[in-house]
Every structure is written in C-alpha cells, then in structure tokens.
Design a protein around this nucleic acid. Structure first.
Lengths: 189, 189
DNA sequence: AAACAATTGGGTAATTGGGGTA
DNA sequence: GATGTCCCAATTACCCAATTGT
C-alpha cells in the first residue's frame, strides 16, 4: 500500500499545510484558532484541513505579489447578463478566472471563497442595496483592494455618486458596453 | 472498488469510516478497540460499522462544539424580528455569540467571517430562495456541520420538505415560539 | 474452486497535535 | 506575528498473518 498519495487525500494535516505554506505547524495552528483558516476536527481533537480551504487561504494571503489570472466575480440575478459577460471575459486572449453569483447570498459567500480581484455588481439585485454591498465589501479587513464595478439599467447621477462614495470604482449601464468594460478592467492591453 | 457509494450501503468498512472521519484506518481500529465506536464483526474477525453508529459517534464530538459559546447568525431583513431574536438569544444564561445579517449578501459574507455554528434563516428574504441558500451553505467545504434552521411566516408542507431536503435542520413559523427554538438549539438544558 | 490483490486485525514504537506560556 | 519548548493525548507507521472480494 502506498502511504503517501498526497494528491489523493481530500484533506491535509497541520504538518502538511505547514510544509506547503512554508511555515511552522504552530503557526498553522494559530491561523486555525483565529478562524483565518477553516478546519475540521477529528474525534480526538486534531485538525484536518480541506484542500480547497487551504487553497483559498493561500490565495487570500497572496495578493501582495500577485501574478496569475485576474479573478472576476459576476454578481447579477439575470442569467442572460451573467452568461453574456462570462462569455466575453473568459476569452482566451485574457488571463482571467470568472465566477458567477445569481443572488446576494451567493455573492457574499464567493467574495470569501473565490477571493476575486474584481466584482461586477448589479446594483439593483432584489433584496440588495448596491451601495450597502459595496460598503460591506470595502469594510472587511483585507478587502480594501478589492475592486467593485457597478452595473445598472438606469443610472442616475445620485445613485452613481452614492456608489462611488461607497467605494465602487465606477458604474456602467446595461446593456454593457464591452470595450468600455474591458478597458476599465485593464484587459484591453 | 468503486469510489464511494457511501450513502447506499448499510454498513461501512474501517477504511470508509477512516476516509469519512479524515483519519487513518488504524485510528478507527483504535476507536473500536476502546469501545468508543461500536462495531459488528464478520466471521473472520473484521469489523463492520453501522452507518447510524458512525453518525452518532461523529456527532458526539462535533455538535456545535463541546467548548466555546454557540455562535448564532440571524439572517432576516426585518429588524424587528432580528432584534427580538437577538435579545432572547444573548441572554446571559446561555453561552452564545450572536451576529446579524439584514440581507443575503451580508449573510453570505458572515457565514465565512463569523463562522457560525447555527444559522437562523428567514426563508422568504427578498431576492433569496431559502432552499438555495441552504444548499449552498452545505455544499461549501467545511460547512457540512453548519446547522440551518429556517424561519418563515407561512409554512407549507412543500416548502418545508424542500428545505429539509436542502439540508435544513427544521423550519419554524413566525412569530417564533421561543421555547421551541431554544429547545431546538439545545439551549434549554 | 483456486488464485490474487486489497484490506484488516493485533501489538508496539514513533510521530504528530493541541494548549498554554515564554 | 511567527516560533520554540514542555506535557500529555491522539494519531500514525511498521511488522506479519488472516480475511475479504473479485
């Protein structure tokens, strides 16, 4: 029997995480205790880390020197809009990773699990206030650099100002002018 | 052998239990030897574990923590309901930490940032489908043990069944019968 | 039925893990 | 903020013979 098919196990021990992150096991323990890194617990009280969670954590603590694909989260309740944007943005010419959210809850979850660089946010999603969402994102420690681009059908000067005040980078109208969006994202180079 | 038709078989082998509990088979053997985990025995002396028994054993060590306050996230767009629940649940007699979310996005964020043991979820929040939210929570790595208790004004058998299927623990009607809720949470002991 | 690979049990030694504190 | 150390419990590795499933 092969003792270590490390890539096969769906979970990692603290030691394995420590080795991967090039830190001491004690540090990993600290992360877990502070809730920064989510852990499962064996009946005996030892921690086990799911691979996905470790990867998420690694991404989160990385963005300092980040290279790699631009991570884009599209949050809109209209599947047509989402599909359209996703189609454009996943073009092979760009170096992007695209994730979608069709309601506010999913968007909130994925801000943490996907750790996007940019959020394309429908500011008129049912049950949500775009400005509030924007403010909440920016308010979270570590998310200050997360870019937010608002999308809306009817853009009044008031709502736009409110959005920008809340920390949004800009606000575009639907239907989306893709060249404009690509330029804003910096994908037109 | 097939990957895992875990939910089909009535009993589990030591290896399967080990994978489930994120532990090595040897550890499972240890649990069985100490009598912590009850086992059947084949004619040849190999152990077989009944599903119910393994679940019992797993829950014995996990449920809402043997240590620390119970972390409760209240997700409801009605400030009156939230305030009422928060007031009750923060009673000093209980060992609780209560956090609130007034829309789906905030709820999604706080599932990760607050890391609740239980979510009290208004299943009729604007822009949200309670069953979807529930499913998304359960689907996330590490959140399998997160309890979800639905709250709704009008509880139809259909919506209740859908919620339970999605992984909710139960569904209560508003106005909330607090003794009932406390009992469900396990705070009435 | 017979062969074969994978799994399991038993026992002991070695390693790892958690918590608290420096 | 990350790490070292101590104590003690939980988990794992390694030995080989027996059982299981195909």
């Amino acid at each position: 029997m092969k003792p270590t098919e490390l890539s096969a196990k769906p979970y990692l021990t603290p030691n394995e995480v420590a080795a991967w992150m090039m830190v001491s096991p004690i540090t990993v323990r600290g992360w877990a205790q502070k809730g920064l890194l989510q852990a499962e617990v064996t009946p005996g009280g030892h921690r086990r880390f799911r691979r996905e969670e470790v990867e998420r954590f690694a991404r989160q603590w990385n963005p300092a020197g980040n290279k790699g694909p631009m991570r884009i989260l599209i949050a809109d309740d209209d599947p047509a809009v989402v599909g359209f944007l996703k189609e454009w943005l996943e073009d092979e010419r760009f170096n992007t990773r695209v994730e979608t959210a069709f309601d506010g809850f999913e968007a909130g979850l994925k801000v943490h699990s996907f750790v996007p660089d940019v959020v394309l946010l429908d500011v008129m999603m049912p049950g949500l206030k775009g400005t509030e969402v924007c403010r909440q994102i920016k308010q979270m420690p570590g998310n200050a650099d997360l870019r937010v681009i608002g999308l809306t059908g009817h853009l009044s000067p008031d709502t736009e100002r409110a959005l920008l005040d809340a920390g949004a980078e800009c606000c575009l109208t639907k239907p989306v002018d893709m060249p404009r969006l690509l330029q804003q994202l910096g994908l037109d180079a």
